[in-house]
Amino acid sequence: MSKGIEGKVVVITGASSGLGESTARHLARLGAAVVLGARREERLNAIVEEIKAEGGKATAHAVDVTRREDLAALVQHAVNTFGRVDVMINNAGLMAISPIAELRVDEWDRMIDINIKGVMYGIAAALPLFEQQGAGHFINISSVAGIKVFSPGGSVYSGTKYAVRAISDGLRHEVGSSIRTTTIEPGAVDSELKHGSGHQASAQAVAEFYKQAIPAESVARAIAFAIEQPADVDINEIVLRPTSQDF
């Protein structure tokens, strides 16, 4: 258990695998009540049952982060189940790497919808509640690719992750007197994110790059660190990557 985490209600998108799943399990072990959102309802329910079997508190609600009403329903489900929301983790993401000249416009649209709009819809769902409570914490998952353009082929993906950093920093300026905002920027982490590229040559390059990936649990620990700080301490940004990663 962690005194700074125990009893807090944490909503997590993209929670059916990877960073979201690891974060849900880790925070539940530290005493948080976790609310899992993702499209794969059967997988979510299995994770919830495993968390409960370990003595944790968890619930799930199917959500597509490209639908604003789904995010609103997820937050409302958290309130209906646990009475409040303390932390909103906007984690769902897509990494479809390909050269711009390939003109994979459908993939660009999908990344913008998930990586940018999905974060904005999560903010829109939780912010009124946080303002009503007079407290809350947004944790938005960007990427090392939001600091430096992932090349070759990562221009659009990096653009979406730069956007997450900009939105997060602006949000902190606007609501930071009572609401905390943290941006997490991981490097290569073992998750399903690496499988998002439909362009064959890019997919092969990503697979090679991700051979150095660190476990998703590493990011979960960074998220827990940000949450467990006293209310007057706002961890604004955490960058973490494999020791061997030079990008």
Rank of each mutant, 00 (worst) to 15 (best):
V11R: 04
E107L: 08
A60Y: 07
Q229L: 04
V119E: 00
A46D: 04
A125D: 00
M120L: 15
V85S: 09
S197H: 01
V48C: 12
A226F: 11
G196D: 05
I116K: 00
V189H: 01
A32G: 13
S218Q: 12
A213I: 05
S98M: 14
T81Y: 01
G14Q: 05
D234P: 12
V10Y: 08
R43W: 04
A213L: 08
E102T: 15
E42V: 15
G37F: 04
V175L: 08
E174V: 00
H77G: 03
M111R: 00
A207S: 00
N115C: 02
S22P: 14
R84M: 10
T81G: 08
I97C: 08
D86G: 13
G196W: 12
L71W: 13
S2K: 11
T160L: 06
K57H: 14
K8Y: 13
R180Q: 14
D246E: 15
A203G: 12
I5W: 04
Y162S: 01
L74Y: 08
F247G: 01
V9L: 10
E217M: 06
R25K: 15
K211L: 02
L171F: 12
G122A: 12
W108H: 06
A226L: 09
I47H: 11
R39P: 09
V85I: 05
V35F: 03
I47W: 13
G136I: 13
T160M: 06
V63W: 05
A163P: 02
M88N: 07
A46H: 04
V239A: 03
Y210E: 10
A224R: 09
N90A: 05
S143W: 08
E50C: 10
V65A: 02
L240P: 08
S177R: 09
S244N: 11
S22F: 13
V149E: 09
R39S: 04
N90F: 11
A216C: 15
V35N: 12
E237Q: 14
G31L: 15
R40E: 05
I139D: 09
S244C: 09
L127Q: 10
G198I: 10
T243W: 14
G122T: 07
R241E: 12
F209R: 03
K148F: 00
I123C: 07
A73Y: 00
